[in-house]
Simulated assay, not measured.
Amino acid sequence: MKDESLDVDGSVWLRSGQQTLGGAARIGLLAAIRESGSITGAAKAVGMSYKAAWDAIDAMNNLAGEPLVVRASGGKGGGGTTLTPAALRLIDTFRAIEREHRKFLEQAGAAIDGFAENWPLIGRIGMKTSARNQLAGKVTRVTRGSVNDEVELVLPGGQSIVAVVTHESADALGLAPGRDAVALIKASWVMLMADEPVRISARNQLKGTVERVTRGAVNAEVSLAIGGSSTITAIITNQSVDALGLAPGESAVAVIKGSSVILGVDD
């Protein structure tokens, strides 16, 4: 997120059933009619055409269930226009609501001190992706290769995960030490093994503790707590669950190839 101040904003609208009776523009038109005594003068004051002003008045009259604006005879712009007591009450009511709404916005704005720091977290929480695992971390190292780069992220629990991405992707994402990033990993790309020393070619081996095992007809979802409130989920067969003795509280290791880790950043 760019380093810009954040503001809270909003507007007030009055509704009648499912229809919008009016907002600031229509109430402003009513107030201008009260001041000028004519549709022509009021429309000019609020920047509306004469027809648009009358369309708004007709809509408000219909939705209010009683007249709000009464026009005396005398031809276009010449007979004078007045507001009914209902319209005057509507203006006062809207202005009172608007004042309270403004107070609310001011209070909400005062409450967002430090919001800029929390904004990336809100963005990550709201992010939608098909990847089951979304691990937030900070880039600690970028190693340039002949074609691809290796990008290492340290996770909140202290463990690291390495992703293999192209030069173009690393540059486009602005990946550099200190940059926040998110590792996206499909659950089907995560392999599990018992917590025993094993030499394998997969770059990432995240140690954790089984939190839960959800069995299906053939496969099971196994979630590991890997520290720092982070969890990673794998989908493996029920047979593998039994063979590895995976159960809540047991230690296990999540194994992920670096090429299976997708990286994302906040804009």
Rank of each mutant, 00 (worst) to 15 (best):
A254H: 05
A42P: 02
T166A: 07
G22Y: 02
V69Y: 00
A64M: 11
M1K: 12
F104T: 15
L173K: 07
V162T: 13
A194I: 00
T82K: 13
I112W: 08
D55V: 08
Y50P: 00
N238V: 11
W189R: 13
T233P: 04
T209W: 02
G137T: 03
K44Y: 02
E98W: 05
E35Q: 13
D3S: 15
N118E: 11
G264H: 03
L29C: 13
E196I: 12
S5A: 14
L30W: 00
P120W: 06
I91N: 03
A136H: 12
L192I: 10
I226L: 04
G245F: 12
D195P: 03
S11G: 15
W13C: 14
A108W: 04
S49K: 10
R102C: 13
L153V: 01
M48R: 12
I27K: 03
A59Y: 05
M48S: 05
V261W: 03
V253N: 01
T84P: 00
Q19K: 14
E150A: 10
S229T: 14
R124Q: 11
S201G: 10
P177R: 04
A96V: 06
T82Y: 04
V142W: 03
I112S: 10
G22M: 06
S251W: 08
V222Q: 00
N61Y: 07
W13S: 15
V151F: 05
V198Y: 08
P248F: 06
G22H: 02
G228S: 09
V46F: 06
L6N: 06
N62E: 13
I97L: 14
K76C: 02
Q18E: 15
T237H: 08
D171K: 14
D113T: 12
A52V: 00
V253M: 01
R179Q: 09
A234V: 03
G79P: 15
G137Q: 01
D149E: 15
A87R: 01
E66H: 11
L173N: 10
E150G: 03
K138I: 15
S223Y: 01
P197C: 02
P67A: 08
E117A: 15
G74D: 13
A108F: 08
S223M: 08
